[in-house]
Write a protein that binds this DNA or RNA. Sequence first.
DNA 1: GTCACTCATGCAACTAGTTGCATAGCCGCG
DNA 2: CGCGGCTATGCAACTAGTTGCATGAGTGAC
Lengths: 196, 196
Amino acid sequence: MALEHAILVSLRERPASGLDLARRFDRSIGFFWSATHQQIYRVLARMEADGWVRSAAVEQHGRPDKKVYEVTDAGRDELAGWLASPMPIEKSRSELAVRLRGASYGDRAAVLQRVREQRADHATRLAHFEQLAARDFPDPAALTGQQLDIYLVLRGGIRLEQFWVEWLSEYLTAHEATLAMAHDDSPTRRTEGKTR
Amino acid sequence: MALEHAILVSLRERPASGLDLARRFDRSIGFFWSATHQQIYRVLARMEADGWVRSAAVEQHGRPDKKVYEVTDAGRDELAGWLASPMPIEKSRSELAVRLRGASYGDRAAVLQRVREQRADHATRLAHFEQLAARDFPDPAALTGQQLDIYLVLRGGIRLEQFWVEWLSEYLTAHEATLAMAHDDSPTRRTEGKTR
DNA sequence: GTCACTCATGCAACTAGTTGCATAGCCGCG
DNA sequence: CGCGGCTATGCAACTAGTTGCATGAGTGAC
Protein backbone atom coordinates (compact mmCIF):
# COMPACT_ATOMS: atom_id res chain seq x y z
CA MET A 1 0.00 0.00 0.00
CA ALA A 2 2.88 2.39 -0.59
CA LEU A 3 1.61 4.07 -3.76
CA GLU A 4 -1.36 5.46 -1.85
CA HIS A 5 0.98 6.99 0.68
CA ALA A 6 3.40 8.31 -1.90
CA ILE A 7 0.42 10.07 -3.49
CA LEU A 8 -0.63 11.47 -0.12
CA VAL A 9 2.87 12.87 0.39
CA SER A 10 2.86 14.42 -3.06
CA LEU A 11 -0.62 15.90 -2.63
CA ARG A 12 0.31 17.39 0.72
CA GLU A 13 3.25 19.11 -0.91
CA ARG A 14 0.74 20.56 -3.38
CA PRO A 15 -2.75 19.54 -4.67
CA ALA A 16 -2.68 18.06 -8.17
CA SER A 17 -4.58 16.19 -10.86
CA GLY A 18 -3.89 12.60 -11.86
CA LEU A 19 -1.70 13.62 -14.76
CA ASP A 20 0.16 16.17 -12.63
CA LEU A 21 0.95 13.38 -10.22
CA ALA A 22 2.10 11.11 -13.03
CA ARG A 23 4.50 13.82 -14.15
CA ARG A 24 5.83 14.28 -10.62
CA PHE A 25 6.33 10.55 -10.38
CA ASP A 26 8.50 10.78 -13.45
CA ARG A 27 10.93 13.03 -11.64
CA SER A 28 11.78 13.85 -8.02
CA ILE A 29 9.57 11.58 -5.91
CA GLY A 30 9.35 9.01 -8.65
CA PHE A 31 13.01 8.25 -8.41
CA PHE A 32 12.19 5.99 -5.47
CA TRP A 33 8.60 5.19 -6.41
CA SER A 34 7.37 5.29 -9.99
CA ALA A 35 3.88 4.72 -11.35
CA THR A 36 2.04 4.98 -14.64
CA HIS A 37 -0.86 7.38 -15.04
CA GLN A 38 -3.34 4.52 -15.24
CA GLN A 39 -2.21 3.13 -11.93
CA ILE A 40 -2.44 6.60 -10.40
CA TYR A 41 -5.97 7.18 -11.73
CA ARG A 42 -7.14 3.90 -10.35
CA VAL A 43 -5.60 4.44 -6.93
CA LEU A 44 -6.92 8.02 -6.75
CA ALA A 45 -10.44 6.71 -7.38
CA ARG A 46 -10.05 4.21 -4.57
CA MET A 47 -8.59 6.83 -2.26
CA GLU A 48 -11.48 9.16 -2.95
CA ALA A 49 -13.96 6.35 -2.25
CA ASP A 50 -12.12 5.76 1.05
CA GLY A 51 -12.30 9.45 1.89
CA TRP A 52 -8.55 10.06 1.96
CA VAL A 53 -8.72 12.69 -0.78
CA ARG A 54 -11.40 14.88 -2.32
CA SER A 55 -11.49 16.25 -5.85
CA ALA A 56 -12.71 19.44 -7.48
CA ALA A 57 -13.23 19.95 -11.22
CA VAL A 58 -11.17 22.87 -12.50
CA GLU A 59 -12.00 24.44 -15.83
CA GLN A 60 -9.14 25.37 -18.12
CA HIS A 61 -9.13 27.50 -21.24
CA GLY A 62 -8.51 25.50 -24.36
CA ARG A 63 -8.06 22.13 -22.73
CA PRO A 64 -10.13 19.52 -20.87
CA ASP A 65 -11.20 20.01 -17.26
CA LYS A 66 -8.88 18.86 -14.52
CA LYS A 67 -9.87 16.94 -11.44
CA VAL A 68 -7.63 18.45 -8.79
CA TYR A 69 -7.21 16.30 -5.70
CA GLU A 70 -6.37 17.40 -2.20
CA VAL A 71 -5.88 15.48 1.02
CA THR A 72 -8.75 15.30 3.55
CA ASP A 73 -8.39 15.15 7.31
CA ALA A 74 -8.85 11.38 7.15
CA GLY A 75 -6.05 11.25 4.57
CA ARG A 76 -3.76 13.25 6.87
CA ASP A 77 -4.40 10.88 9.73
CA GLU A 78 -3.82 7.90 7.49
CA LEU A 79 -0.50 9.33 6.28
CA ALA A 80 0.66 10.22 9.79
CA GLY A 81 -0.21 6.71 10.99
CA TRP A 82 1.62 5.09 8.11
CA LEU A 83 4.74 7.21 8.61
CA ALA A 84 5.01 6.06 12.21
CA SER A 85 4.18 2.39 11.57
CA PRO A 86 6.93 -0.22 11.77
CA MET A 87 8.25 -1.59 8.50
CA PRO A 88 9.95 -4.84 7.47
CA ILE A 89 13.40 -4.64 5.90
CA GLU A 90 13.21 -3.82 2.21
CA LYS A 91 14.35 -6.26 -0.41
CA SER A 92 16.12 -5.07 -3.49
CA ARG A 93 15.47 -6.38 -6.94
CA SER A 94 17.75 -6.10 -9.92
CA GLU A 95 17.60 -7.87 -13.24
CA LEU A 96 21.12 -6.68 -13.96
CA ALA A 97 22.45 -8.46 -10.88
CA VAL A 98 20.88 -11.70 -12.13
CA ARG A 99 22.66 -11.23 -15.45
CA LEU A 100 25.98 -10.56 -13.74
CA ARG A 101 25.58 -13.70 -11.73
CA GLY A 102 24.70 -15.79 -14.80
CA ALA A 103 27.13 -14.22 -17.26
CA SER A 104 29.15 -17.43 -17.64
CA TYR A 105 26.12 -19.16 -19.20
CA GLY A 106 26.05 -16.87 -22.21
CA ASP A 107 28.28 -14.68 -24.30
CA ARG A 108 30.54 -12.97 -21.77
CA ALA A 109 31.48 -10.13 -24.13
CA ALA A 110 27.82 -9.31 -24.78
CA VAL A 111 27.07 -9.14 -21.05
CA LEU A 112 30.05 -6.85 -20.47
CA GLN A 113 28.66 -4.61 -23.19
CA ARG A 114 25.29 -4.45 -21.40
CA VAL A 115 27.10 -3.61 -18.18
CA ARG A 116 28.95 -0.75 -19.88
CA GLU A 117 25.64 0.60 -21.18
CA GLN A 118 24.02 0.43 -17.77
CA ARG A 119 27.01 2.13 -16.18
CA ALA A 120 26.78 4.94 -18.71
CA ASP A 121 23.06 5.40 -17.96
CA HIS A 122 23.71 5.56 -14.26
CA ALA A 123 26.60 7.97 -14.74
CA THR A 124 24.30 10.24 -16.74
CA ARG A 125 21.67 10.21 -14.03
CA LEU A 126 24.31 10.81 -11.39
CA ALA A 127 25.52 13.91 -13.22
CA HIS A 128 21.93 15.10 -13.59
CA PHE A 129 21.17 14.68 -9.89
CA GLU A 130 24.37 16.41 -8.86
CA GLN A 131 23.45 19.32 -11.08
CA LEU A 132 20.00 19.51 -9.51
CA ALA A 133 21.50 19.49 -6.03
CA ALA A 134 23.97 22.24 -6.88
CA ARG A 135 21.26 24.35 -8.51
CA ASP A 136 18.44 23.95 -5.98
CA PHE A 137 20.34 23.49 -2.74
CA PRO A 138 23.43 25.72 -2.75
CA ASP A 139 23.52 25.81 1.07
CA PRO A 140 22.39 22.42 2.44
CA ALA A 141 23.46 23.21 6.01
CA ALA A 142 20.79 25.90 6.27
CA LEU A 143 17.87 23.59 5.38
CA THR A 144 15.22 22.39 7.82
CA GLY A 145 11.92 20.52 7.76
CA GLN A 146 10.36 19.70 4.43
CA GLN A 147 13.12 21.24 2.32
CA LEU A 148 15.76 19.29 4.21
CA ASP A 149 13.83 16.08 3.57
CA ILE A 150 13.61 16.77 -0.14
CA TYR A 151 17.33 17.50 -0.26
CA LEU A 152 18.24 14.36 1.67
CA VAL A 153 16.16 12.15 -0.62
CA LEU A 154 17.97 13.70 -3.58
CA ARG A 155 21.21 12.86 -1.76
CA GLY A 156 19.94 9.28 -1.59
CA GLY A 157 19.46 9.30 -5.34
CA ILE A 158 22.99 10.57 -5.81
CA ARG A 159 24.43 7.98 -3.45
CA LEU A 160 22.47 5.20 -5.15
CA GLU A 161 23.74 6.17 -8.59
CA GLN A 162 27.25 6.28 -7.17
CA PHE A 163 26.73 2.76 -5.88
CA TRP A 164 25.81 1.56 -9.37
CA VAL A 165 28.67 3.28 -11.14
CA GLU A 166 31.21 1.99 -8.63
CA TRP A 167 29.90 -1.57 -8.51
CA LEU A 168 29.66 -1.93 -12.28
CA SER A 169 33.15 -0.46 -12.61
CA GLU A 170 34.44 -3.03 -10.14
CA TYR A 171 32.74 -5.75 -12.18
CA LEU A 172 34.21 -4.55 -15.45
CA THR A 173 37.70 -4.07 -14.03
CA ALA A 174 37.74 -7.55 -12.51
CA HIS A 175 36.64 -9.18 -15.77
CA GLU A 176 38.94 -7.14 -17.94
CA ALA A 177 41.78 -8.35 -15.70
CA THR A 178 40.88 -12.02 -16.27
CA LEU A 179 40.53 -11.45 -20.00
CA ALA A 180 44.02 -9.90 -20.03
CA MET A 181 45.33 -12.90 -18.08
CA ALA A 182 43.78 -15.29 -20.56
CA HIS A 183 45.64 -13.48 -23.36
CA ASP A 184 49.00 -13.38 -21.54
CA ASP A 185 48.94 -17.06 -20.66
CA SER A 186 49.99 -17.76 -24.25
CA PRO A 187 49.68 -21.31 -25.65
CA THR A 188 47.84 -23.09 -22.80
CA ARG A 189 44.66 -21.05 -23.34
CA ARG A 190 42.63 -21.25 -20.15
CA THR A 191 39.62 -19.48 -21.55
CA GLU A 192 37.10 -19.19 -18.76
CA GLY A 193 33.35 -18.96 -19.23
CA LYS A 194 31.18 -20.19 -22.14
CA THR A 195 30.65 -23.60 -20.54
CA ARG A 196 28.46 -24.85 -23.29
CA MET B 1 10.24 -12.16 -17.38
CA ALA B 2 13.24 -12.03 -15.07
CA LEU B 3 12.17 -14.69 -12.57
CA GLU B 4 12.26 -17.30 -15.31
CA HIS B 5 15.81 -16.34 -16.12
CA ALA B 6 16.91 -16.15 -12.51
CA ILE B 7 15.64 -19.73 -12.16
CA LEU B 8 17.52 -20.78 -15.29
CA VAL B 9 20.74 -19.32 -13.84
CA SER B 10 20.17 -21.11 -10.56
CA LEU B 11 19.34 -24.44 -12.23
CA ARG B 12 22.42 -24.22 -14.40
CA GLU B 13 24.54 -23.80 -11.32
CA ARG B 14 22.91 -27.00 -10.05
CA PRO B 15 19.61 -28.86 -10.73
CA ALA B 16 17.05 -28.44 -7.97
CA SER B 17 13.44 -28.91 -6.87
CA GLY B 18 10.98 -26.06 -6.42
CA LEU B 19 11.59 -25.89 -2.69
CA ASP B 20 15.37 -26.04 -3.17
CA LEU B 21 15.07 -23.03 -5.44
CA ALA B 22 12.90 -21.20 -2.93
CA ARG B 23 15.59 -21.74 -0.32
CA ARG B 24 18.30 -20.49 -2.67
CA PHE B 25 16.19 -17.44 -3.39
CA ASP B 26 16.19 -16.73 0.32
CA ARG B 27 19.96 -16.37 0.29
CA SER B 28 22.68 -15.70 -2.29
CA ILE B 29 20.84 -15.14 -5.58
CA GLY B 30 17.73 -14.00 -3.78
CA PHE B 31 19.44 -10.93 -2.47
CA PHE B 32 18.81 -9.32 -5.82
CA TRP B 33 15.76 -11.33 -6.82
CA SER B 34 13.46 -12.91 -4.26
CA ALA B 35 10.41 -15.12 -4.82
CA THR B 36 8.01 -17.17 -2.77
CA HIS B 37 7.76 -20.91 -3.27
CA GLN B 38 4.31 -20.57 -4.82
CA GLN B 39 5.54 -18.18 -7.43
CA ILE B 40 8.45 -20.51 -8.17
CA TYR B 41 6.20 -23.56 -8.53
CA ARG B 42 3.93 -21.74 -10.92
CA VAL B 43 6.77 -20.42 -13.06
CA LEU B 44 8.49 -23.83 -13.11
CA ALA B 45 5.28 -25.39 -14.45
CA ARG B 46 5.12 -22.79 -17.21
CA MET B 47 8.79 -23.22 -18.02
CA GLU B 48 8.36 -26.98 -18.27
CA ALA B 49 5.37 -26.49 -20.59
CA ASP B 50 7.56 -24.20 -22.71
CA GLY B 51 10.32 -26.82 -22.79
CA TRP B 52 12.93 -24.70 -21.01
CA VAL B 53 13.34 -27.23 -18.19
CA ARG B 54 12.57 -30.90 -17.65
CA SER B 55 11.80 -32.62 -14.36
CA ALA B 56 12.45 -36.03 -12.87
CA ALA B 57 10.75 -37.44 -9.76
CA VAL B 58 13.30 -38.42 -7.12
CA GLU B 59 12.31 -40.75 -4.29
CA GLN B 60 13.54 -39.91 -0.82
CA HIS B 61 13.49 -42.03 2.33
CA GLY B 62 11.09 -40.74 4.94
CA ARG B 63 9.87 -37.68 3.02
CA PRO B 64 7.79 -36.87 -0.06
CA ASP B 65 9.15 -37.27 -3.58
CA LYS B 66 11.01 -34.38 -5.13
CA LYS B 67 10.60 -33.08 -8.64
CA VAL B 68 14.14 -32.17 -9.60
CA TYR B 69 14.36 -29.77 -12.51
CA GLU B 70 17.21 -29.28 -14.96
CA VAL B 71 17.70 -26.96 -17.90
CA THR B 72 17.07 -28.27 -21.43
CA ASP B 73 18.93 -27.17 -24.56
CA ALA B 74 16.05 -24.82 -25.37
CA GLY B 75 16.40 -23.36 -21.89
CA ARG B 76 20.13 -22.80 -22.44
CA ASP B 77 19.48 -20.97 -25.66
CA GLU B 78 16.78 -18.89 -24.04
CA LEU B 79 19.10 -17.93 -21.19
CA ALA B 80 22.00 -17.08 -23.51
CA GLY B 81 19.69 -14.93 -25.64
CA TRP B 82 18.33 -13.10 -22.63
CA LEU B 83 21.79 -12.43 -21.22
CA ALA B 84 22.85 -10.71 -24.43
CA SER B 85 19.60 -8.77 -24.97
CA PRO B 86 19.52 -5.03 -24.39
CA MET B 87 17.87 -3.79 -21.23
CA PRO B 88 16.20 -0.53 -20.16
CA ILE B 89 17.62 1.31 -17.18
CA GLU B 90 16.34 -0.11 -13.93
CA LYS B 91 14.13 1.88 -11.61
CA SER B 92 14.55 1.63 -7.91
CA ARG B 93 11.69 1.46 -5.47
CA SER B 94 11.85 2.20 -1.79
CA GLU B 95 9.04 2.70 0.65
CA LEU B 96 11.54 4.07 3.15
CA ALA B 97 12.54 6.85 0.75
CA VAL B 98 8.88 7.87 0.47
CA ARG B 99 8.71 8.06 4.26
CA LEU B 100 11.87 10.16 4.45
CA ARG B 101 10.44 12.54 1.90
CA GLY B 102 7.12 12.81 3.73
CA ALA B 103 8.45 12.85 7.29
CA SER B 104 7.29 16.41 7.94
CA TYR B 105 3.64 15.32 7.55
CA GLY B 106 3.76 13.04 10.57
CA ASP B 107 5.56 12.56 13.84
CA ARG B 108 9.18 13.35 13.02
CA ALA B 109 10.56 11.49 16.03
CA ALA B 110 8.69 8.32 15.08
CA VAL B 111 10.08 8.43 11.54
CA LEU B 112 13.61 8.91 12.85
CA GLN B 113 13.07 5.85 15.02
CA ARG B 114 12.06 3.81 11.95
CA VAL B 115 15.15 5.06 10.17
CA ARG B 116 17.35 3.92 13.04
CA GLU B 117 15.74 0.48 12.91
CA GLN B 118 16.26 0.19 9.16
CA ARG B 119 19.86 1.30 9.50
CA ALA B 120 20.44 -1.35 12.14
CA ASP B 121 18.94 -4.04 9.88
CA HIS B 122 21.14 -2.99 6.98
CA ALA B 123 24.22 -2.86 9.22
CA THR B 124 23.49 -6.41 10.34
CA ARG B 125 23.18 -7.63 6.77
CA LEU B 126 26.33 -5.78 5.81
CA ALA B 127 28.28 -7.54 8.57
CA HIS B 128 26.82 -10.87 7.47
CA PHE B 129 27.81 -10.35 3.84
CA GLU B 130 31.29 -9.23 4.76
CA GLN B 131 31.70 -12.37 6.83
CA LEU B 132 30.55 -14.52 3.91
CA ALA B 133 33.01 -12.80 1.59
CA ALA B 134 35.90 -13.27 4.00
CA ARG B 135 35.02 -16.93 4.57
CA ASP B 136 34.26 -18.03 1.01
CA PHE B 137 36.55 -15.79 -1.00
CA PRO B 138 39.84 -15.32 0.86
CA ASP B 139 41.72 -14.58 -2.38
CA PRO B 140 39.41 -12.66 -4.76
CA ALA B 141 42.20 -11.78 -7.18
CA ALA B 142 42.60 -15.46 -8.13
CA LEU B 143 38.94 -15.96 -9.15
CA THR B 144 37.72 -16.40 -12.72
CA GLY B 145 34.52 -17.24 -14.56
CA GLN B 146 31.52 -18.37 -12.56
CA GLN B 147 33.19 -18.05 -9.16
CA LEU B 148 34.29 -14.51 -9.97
CA ASP B 149 30.70 -13.62 -10.92
CA ILE B 150 29.34 -15.00 -7.67
CA TYR B 151 31.93 -13.06 -5.72
CA LEU B 152 31.23 -9.81 -7.59
CA VAL B 153 27.48 -10.09 -6.99
CA LEU B 154 28.22 -10.57 -3.30
CA ARG B 155 30.37 -7.43 -3.54
CA GLY B 156 27.31 -5.69 -4.98
CA GLY B 157 25.31 -6.76 -1.95
CA ILE B 158 28.00 -5.39 0.34
CA ARG B 159 28.17 -2.11 -1.55
CA LEU B 160 24.37 -1.77 -1.52
CA GLU B 161 24.19 -2.30 2.23
CA GLN B 162 26.95 0.28 2.65
CA PHE B 163 24.86 2.68 0.59
CA TRP B 164 21.93 2.24 2.94
CA VAL B 165 23.92 2.59 6.13
CA GLU B 166 25.68 5.70 4.88
CA TRP B 167 22.60 7.38 3.47
CA LEU B 168 20.48 6.74 6.55
CA SER B 169 23.34 7.97 8.73
CA GLU B 170 23.49 11.16 6.68
CA TYR B 171 19.73 11.57 7.13
CA LEU B 172 19.89 11.04 10.89
CA THR B 173 22.88 13.33 11.35
CA ALA B 174 21.27 16.14 9.38
CA HIS B 175 18.04 15.93 11.37
CA GLU B 176 19.73 15.58 14.73
CA ALA B 177 21.59 18.79 13.85
CA THR B 178 18.35 20.70 13.19
CA LEU B 179 16.82 19.31 16.40
CA ALA B 180 19.86 20.54 18.35
CA MET B 181 19.53 23.93 16.63
CA ALA B 182 15.85 24.10 17.61
CA HIS B 183 16.88 23.52 21.23
CA ASP B 184 19.72 26.06 21.19
CA ASP B 185 17.57 28.76 19.68
CA SER B 186 16.02 29.18 23.12
CA PRO B 187 12.76 31.14 23.54
CA THR B 188 11.89 31.78 19.87
CA ARG B 189 11.12 28.13 19.25
CA ARG B 190 11.33 27.57 15.50
CA THR B 191 10.07 24.02 15.65
CA GLU B 192 10.12 22.73 12.13
CA GLY B 193 7.83 20.01 10.79
CA LYS B 194 4.41 18.91 12.06
CA THR B 195 2.64 21.37 9.75
CA ARG B 196 -0.77 20.27 10.86
C1' DG C 1 -6.87 21.09 -44.19
C1' DT C 2 -5.09 17.36 -42.22
C1' DC C 3 -1.52 15.21 -39.73
C1' DA C 4 0.79 14.57 -35.59
C1' DC C 5 1.13 15.87 -30.97
C1' DT C 6 -0.36 17.30 -26.22
C1' DC C 7 -3.72 17.52 -22.38
C1' DA C 8 -6.72 14.93 -19.62
C1' DT C 9 -9.34 10.96 -18.06
C1' DG C 10 -10.42 6.42 -18.17
C1' DC C 11 -11.70 1.10 -19.47
C1' DA C 12 -10.25 -3.68 -20.37
C1' DA C 13 -7.20 -7.25 -20.42
C1' DC C 14 -3.11 -8.82 -19.13
C1' DT C 15 1.23 -10.28 -16.14
C1' DA C 16 3.51 -10.61 -11.73
C1' DG C 17 3.55 -11.48 -7.16
C1' DT C 18 1.38 -12.38 -2.33
C1' DT C 19 -1.45 -14.68 1.13
C1' DG C 20 -4.00 -18.27 2.89
C1' DC C 21 -4.97 -22.79 2.80
C1' DA C 22 -4.85 -28.12 1.70
C1' DT C 23 -2.60 -32.47 1.73
C1' DA C 24 0.21 -35.97 3.69
C1' DG C 25 3.87 -38.37 5.86
C1' DC C 26 7.76 -38.23 9.03
C1' DC C 27 10.31 -36.55 13.26
C1' DG C 28 11.03 -35.25 17.87
C1' DC C 29 8.96 -33.30 22.43
C1' DG C 30 6.72 -34.00 26.63
C1' DC D 1 -0.45 -40.20 22.03
C1' DG D 2 -1.18 -35.88 20.24
C1' DC D 3 1.11 -31.41 19.01
C1' DG D 4 3.92 -28.59 16.44
C1' DG D 5 7.26 -28.33 12.95
C1' DC D 6 9.59 -29.90 8.76
C1' DT D 7 9.52 -31.81 3.98
C1' DA D 8 7.24 -31.33 -0.46
C1' DT D 9 3.83 -29.78 -3.91
C1' DG D 10 0.10 -27.25 -5.24
C1' DC D 11 -4.79 -24.58 -5.74
C1' DA D 12 -7.59 -20.39 -5.20
C1' DA D 13 -8.27 -15.80 -4.45
C1' DC D 14 -6.36 -11.69 -4.00
C1' DT D 15 -3.47 -7.15 -4.82
C1' DA D 16 -0.31 -4.51 -7.61
C1' DG D 17 1.26 -2.95 -11.73
C1' DT D 18 1.66 -2.84 -17.06
C1' DT D 19 0.09 -2.41 -21.80
C1' DG D 20 -2.95 -1.18 -25.26
C1' DC D 21 -6.55 1.40 -26.53
C1' DA D 22 -10.49 5.05 -26.61
C1' DT D 23 -12.26 9.65 -26.34
C1' DG D 24 -12.38 14.52 -27.56
C1' DA D 25 -10.73 19.05 -27.87
C1' DG D 26 -6.70 22.24 -28.89
C1' DT D 27 -2.22 23.50 -31.03
C1' DG D 28 1.44 23.86 -34.30
C1' DA D 29 3.66 22.31 -38.82
C1' DC D 30 3.58 22.09 -43.69
